[in-house]
């Protein structure tokens, strides 16, 4: 499953920076060294690739939805139709400097395999995802006893493409498990602003609406 989370799913996606670009994508793009080679897994309509190309990055994309791919290709972006769960295995080791998975992890069938492939294909991996440990989500489950639905994650449990939610804490544990080293981690509040760098993990896990991790192989 590769479709980018629908536009209205995370609050940050509606928050746009001065140039009109999504704040979370700007943040991701700033983690990438100019001039490097990047694979954007689940590239949607190519917004991040477009941002990256402006930074002199040689960008490629994979996207599940046919409409997304065709839109990207018509824009001249190098995007292929494919699935993160099945197609990453066709890429050779160290083919890219960065492999990016933006707001797509929770929709993959085997998130751990996907992250392992990313670390194999790229020297760095950048993963951003909605944090299921956010206090609003916790409160909903606790007080209503039902699967949480928020303005940012509005779908019912039976309709959502998101099949593997995790919290910031869960994700960092998995990183340790697959031998990934955390170069950088940022949690964003609902307005797309980065939380304090020196805040403790429990604070991020409670107040971060989404997180962005820059990883590399140990």
């Amino acid at each position: 499953m590769l479709a980018r989370v629908p536009r209205d799913l995370t609050m940050a996606e509606t928050v746009r920076g001065p140039g009109g670009a999504r704040v979370d994508l700007l943040l991701v793009s700033q983690m990438v060294e100019p001039g490097s080679r990047v694979l954007d897994v689940g590239c949607g309509d190519g917004e991040l690739l477009h941002l990256l190309e402006a930074r002199g990055v040689d960008g490629r994309g994979i996207e599940l939805s046919r409409e997304g791919v065709n839109e990207c290709v018509a824009k001249g972006l190098a995007v292929v139709q494919g699935d993160a769960d099945t197609d990453l295995s066709f890429y050779p080791d160290d083919a890219f400097d960065y492999v990016i998975l933006s707001q797509t992890l929770q929709a993959t069938r085997c998130p751990r395999d996907v992250v392992e492939h990313m670390l194999r294909i790229g020297r760095h991996a950048i993963v951003s995802f909605p944090n299921f440990g956010h206090w609003r989500i916790r409160l909903q489950l606790m007080f209503y006893g039902r699967m949480p639905r928020t303005a940012n994650l509005p779908e019912t449990w039976y309709e959502t493409p998101n099949i593997h939610f995790c919290t910031i804490k869960d994700f960092s544990e998995m990183c340790a498990l697959v031998g990934a080293r955390m170069e950088k981690a940022v949690a964003l509040d609902p307005w797309g602003r980065a939380l304090k760098i020196d805040a403790p993990w429990w604070f991020w896990n409670l107040f971060g609406e989404q997180a962005v991790f820059l990883l590399n192989r140990k």
Binding site: D58, R66, C72, V73, L77, A78, V79, V80, G82
Partner: peptide, 8 residues
């Protein structure tokens, strides 16, 4: 550098 589209 490859793009790939399947047209319905």
């Amino acid at each position: 550098r490859v793009s790939f589209a399947e047209i319905e």
